[in-house]
Design a protein around this nucleic acid. Structure first.
Length: 489
RNA sequence: GUCCCCAUCGUCUAGUGGCCUAGGACACUGGCCUUUCACGCCGGUAACCGGGGUUCGACUCCCCGUGGGGACGCCA
């Protein structure tokens, strides 16, 4: 049944004029399940997905699990979860490459029969040795063709190599980098079937992309040098060669390829750190792609605007600060309800529906001042504590005999406030400041410390409104007793 | 070492021969707003890697250098 996917002919190519003129676009993301989905992979997947969406095409997911040693189901699940979280939905798949080895072997056999590939018994040790000496002598380490014309029969444990032409030029049409020429003499006879009988990446990817009808192969820059060999394989197999688009790498602050030592590289780690998928998507898409001066894009906008000809050619440095800025932006665009929902996996309190209104109010207070969900949770802690913990410096500065009078006045007035809302409370504080002939600040700061324990918090009127009359009064009363208990200074 | 790719503010980028005294965004920073913080608003610092060409004119085109990245696996 896996074979059928290539012939999915009755395809409706969306409404764009352009699409009516050309073959329907079909792209894919083909990760190997040897770890989580990382930032670089996510961006490649995003570009691939966006390109398909933009052109009314199909986006396919294929898991390249031919390396039996390193592939795990856990990784597959992690990748699928991350894709789902980012909203990168696939139209076909996931297909598992390892399930297709029968097909791959058939094709390999065919190539051997046709003399386009041959069995090779060189051992890994021998090859490793040759590579080392070649490198030491300043030569390019390539297979020397020992078994090329020996016409060896298949033997267990030996490999199959593809016979690369040693003259001529192979041309790659790259939608991002432009056309690139490779001298065939630079290529060597690559292994297409390993000793364990499994096809190698370069072979399997060609067969699968061809049979699955992929029109645009969008992948990382690191594959550029694989492409001429793959093109040669397409030709040897008699398959049409797709279009390629190699997207530049993402680098760390030191301009080295992004890796764990640069900090979090897993997509899901960003979820766990309190980032919103929209923020990560928006950040990632702007790494290498742009649309004039626009920085913020909705998903719909991206699907309408994205294209490969506006993708840049140079590698980009990952900048966590800008991601943070975007995350803050998206937190502010969320409705309180959606925010509460997003907070649930990170915050036990958010799952407590019993205090739904209180929770929504808390989240509303913090929404505009949080760069991540974790910051929000952190900033909200004081709402939930039984007894406010006073920051030492804050208490020292504001919970003083001098401010006790202000606090008493607030405490006195609170029971009489008819309109117990943010607005009503603001009005109260303002009139109090006026009647006590002081600045609002002189009342607000001590009050803030009394209610939150800190000098930094949401607007104090918001805090009181959220806390409610009873809790607010209790907290003020407690602050007052602390002031009285303290030795006079 | 060989091959491939790339090169505009610290970072992401706009710029497709004259519109550039190089634009935007993040970060940094001065100010305003203000009950703290954040937001918001106004302003500032900051870049075309170097050298040769081509051209009346180069950030833009070509060559060379330099720098950075990638590839050179029975990994993908």
């Amino acid at each position: 049944m896996l074979l059928d996917i290539a012939g999915n002919g009755s395809y409706n190519a969306g409404s764009g004029r352009k699409n009516l003129m050309s073959k329907p676009v079909k792209t894919r993301f083909a990760p190997s399940p040897t770890g989580y989905l990382h930032i670089g992979g996510a961006r490649t997947a995003l570009f691939s997905w966006l390109f398909a969406r933009r052109h009314g095409g199909t986006f396919l997911l294929r898991i390249e699990d031919t390396d039996q040693q390193r592939s795990t189901d856990e990784s597959t699940r992690a990748i699928l979860d991350a894709m789902a979280w980012l909203g990168l939905n696939w139209d076909e798949g996931p297909f598992f490459q390892a399930e297709r080895v029968g097909i791959h072997r058939q094709m390999i056999e065919r190539l051997v029969d046709e003399g386009k590939a041959y069995w090779c018994t060189c051992t890994q040790e021998e090859l490793e040795e040759k590579r080392k000496t070649a490198l030491a002598q300043g030569r390019k380490p390539k297979y020397d063709g020992t078994c090329r014309d020996r016409h060896l029969p298949p033997t267990p444990g030996s490999v199959v190599r593809f016979r690369c032409p040693d003259v001529g030029v192979t041309r790659m049409e790259d939608l991002i980098k432009g056309n690139i020429l490779f001298q065939n003499e630079e290529l060597d006879d690559l292994v297409i079937q390993r000793g364990d009988g499994y096809p190698t990446y370069n072979f399997a990817v060609v067969v699968d992309d061809a049979q699955m009808g992929i029109t645009h192969v969008i992948r990382g820059d690191d594959h550029v040098n694989n492409t001429p060999r793959q093109i040669l394989l397409y030709e040897a197999l008699g398959f049409p060669v797709p279009l390629f688009a190699h997207v530049p790498m993402i680098l760390g602050a030191d301009k080295a390829r992004l890796s764990k030592r640069h900090g979090a590289t897993s997509v899901m780690a960003y979820r766990d750190m309190g980032y919103l998928p929209e923020a990560l998507v928006n950040y990632l898409v702007r790494l290498g792609w742009s649309h004039g001066d626009q920085e913020i894009f909705t998903g719909d906008e991206l699907q309408g605007l994205f294209d490969l000809d506006t993708v840049g050619k140079s590698p980009a440095v990952f900048n966590p600060e800008k991601l943070l800025w975007l995350n803050q932006h998206y937190i502010r665009t969320y409705s309180v309800e959606r925010l509460v929902e997003a907070l649930q996996p990170l915050w036990p309190a958010a799952s407590d529906s019993a205090q739904g209104d209180f929770l929504r109010s808390v989240v509303g207070d913090l929404q505009s001042r949080s760069r991540t969900l974790l910051e929000l949770i952190d900033g909200a802690a004081f709402y939930f504590s039984e007894e406010v913990r006073y920051d030492e410096k804050a208490a020292e500065k504001f919970l003083t005999a001098a401010s006790a009078g202000h606090l008493e006045a607030v405490l006195e007035q609170l029971p009489g406030v008819e309109n117990y809302t943010r607005e009503g409370l603001e009005a109260l504080l303002r009139s109090l400041a006026e009647s006590r002939q002081t600045k609002l600040k002189e009342i607000a700061q001590p009050l803030r410390v009394a209610l939150t324990g800190k000098t930094v918090s949401p607007g104090i009127d918001e805090v009181m409104a959220t806390l409610g009359r009873k809790r607010s009064m209790e907290r003020i009363a407690r602050a007052l007793s602390c002031i009285r208990a303290a030795p006079p200074s």
